[in-house]
Design a protein around this nucleic acid. Structure first.
Lengths: 235, 235
DNA sequence: CCGTATCCGGGGGGATACTG
DNA sequence: CAGTATCCCCCCGGATACGG
C-alpha cells in the first residue's frame, strides 16, 4: 500500500488508495465469491504468490474489510470473513465486473484461460437443484490442455455439496463432457451457449441423457454472463 | 500498465488490469466529472505529474475509454472525451465513491486537504439557479492556509457560468466566507452543514443577506454527500 | 495446511527541465 | 497552453526457501 497517497479528500480517491494496489480487486472478488480459507483463496488467484496474498490479507484487515478468525478447535487454522464494509464492497466488484463484461474484448483472454481456475469458478456455481437427487459425477475432458490439467471430475452430492477433483474419485461417471478450454470458458462467461457449442461440434456430451439434456440448467454461469457485450469481438 | 497481466478471463480481473494502475481511477473520476482539457484535468489530479497524466491518457485512449479530439481551429489544442465505454464507467466510479464515503474514516484526509482542489470541485457544483440572476462574486478566505492559496473568488455569471479565481477579479464582493479548510471540506462532503458550522463559529458569512441565507442551496455538495457514513469517526 | 522470511530485479512513477 | 524527454530512486511484487 503506497503511503504515497493521492492526498485527496474525495471518497473515490480514498477508496482508490486501497483498490489501486496490484491483486487487491481480484482478491476482494474472490472473498465476495465466498472463499474464506487461505488455500481456497489461492485457487481463485493462482498466479499470486503466497507472500503477497498474505500481505494483502493483512492490509485488507487493517482497512476493516475482512476479519481474521481462528477456526474453533484449531488455533493454527484461520478463516477470512468479510466485515460489513467488505460485504458492501460487493457493489463495487459487481460494477467493475459488469463494465468488464460489457466493454472488454475477450478474445485474447480466452486463449490463455487457466483450466484450474475455470473449474474452480464453475464448481461454485453448479446448480444442484437441477441435478438428480443422488450423487452425480461429471467428467470434464479438455482436449487442448496439458495432460496433467486436462481431466476434472465434478461430484455433486445432495448431502456434501459439490466437489472438484483433479484425481479420479473412482465413482461411476454419469456424464462425459468433451470440449476445448476456450469453448468451455466462453460458455461459462455467457458468450456462447451449450446448445450452439453442441451443434458446432465444439462440445460433446455422452452418458446419462437426462444429465446431458439438463446441462444448461445445472451448469450455472458466471455472475456477469447476463450482461451483454457492447463491443464487437476482434475476430 | 503492467503487461504482467492477471491472466484471468473473469471480467473483474480484466477490468482490474486497467483500473489497477496508479492514478487511473482518480483520473477517470475527473473525466466523468466533466473535465476535457489537459490543464483542467491537471487541476483535478494536482499531484500527478504531467508526464504520467499524458501516459495515462494515452492508455485510456488505447483501451477505448476516451477519445482525443483536436479543437477545431487550433490543431495543437486537444480535448479528451469519454466514449460510450467511458461513460459507462461512471457506474464504477459511483460505486467506488459511495463505498468510500460510507466506510472510510475521513479524519486524517480532512487535515491535509488541498484548498485548490477543494475550490476546483466546489466550483463545478455551484448551483447558479439558487443565486440572484446577476453576476455574483463570493470571496472565500481560509484562515489556516498559506497566504498564496488562502483567498479565492467564485464569480457566478448567468451568461458565463461559474469562474474560479485565485487573483482578485476586482468585482464588488457580494459575500465574504471566512472559515478553515477542514470545515469547508467537511461541509462539501456532507459531513457537516452550513447551519451547524455557523452556530459553531467555524464559518462566518458577511455581505449580502440573501446570498448568505441561500448558501446551503447554491453551494452544491459532493456527489457522495448524500451517502451516510457507516463508521464512527476516529476522533 | 497455513503461512513467514528473505532476496532481488525491473519498472512504475516522481521530479525536473525543456519545447512548440 | 499542452505536452515530451530524461534521470533515477525506491519499492512492488515474483521466486524461492523455510517454519509452525
Amino acid at each position: 500500500m503506497p503511503e504515497a497517497t493521492y492526498n485527496q479528500f474525495c471518497p473515490v480517491a480514498m477508496a482508490a488508495e486501497i483498490l489501486g494496489s496490484r491483486w487487491t480487486i481480484v482478491l476482494i472478488r474472490e472473498l465476495c465469491a465466498g472463499s474464506t480459507r487461505f488455500n481456497d483463496l489461492r485457487r481463485g488467484v493462482p498466479r499470486m504468490s503466497t507472500a503477497l496474498l498474505s500481505k494483502r490479507l493483512r492490509e485488507l484487515e487493517a482497512h476493516g474489510i475482512i476479519e481474521r478468525r481462528s477456526v474453533e478447535g484449531n488455533s493454527s487454522q484461520h478463516e477470512y470473513h468479510l466485515t460489513a464494509a467488505g460485504k458492501d464492497m460487493t457493489d463495487v466488484i459487481m460494477a467493475i465486473g459488469i463494465w468488464g463484461q460489457r466493454w472488454i474484448d475477450t478474445e485474447l483472454h480466452l486463449d490463455n484461460s487457466d483450466p484450474a481456475l475455470l473449474m474452480w469458478d464453475m464448481r461454485r456455481s453448479i446448480n444442484q437443484g437441477a441435478l438428480p437427487l443422488r450423487r452425480v459425477n461429471v467428467q470434464f475432458n479438455f482436449n487442448d490442455v496439458a495432460r496433467n490439467e486436462a481431466c476434472w471430475w465434478v461430484v455433486s452430492d445432495p448431502e456434501h455439496g459439490v466437489d472438484l477433483c483433479l484425481k479420479d474419485p473412482g465413482f461411476f461417471v454419469d456424464l462425459y463432457v468433451e470440449t476445448d478450454i476456450k469453448t468451455m470458458t466462453a460458455i461459462w462467461m455467457g458468450l456462447a451457449s451449450v446448445t450452439s457449442a453442441l451443434s458446432n461440434d465444439k462440445l460433446l456430451l455422452s452418458g446419462d441423457t437426462d444429465v446431458a439434456n439438463g446441462m444448461h440448467d445445472w451448469l450455472g454461469l458466471s455472475l456477469f454472463a447476463p450482461y451483454e457485450k457492447q463491443v464487437a469481438p476482434s475476430d
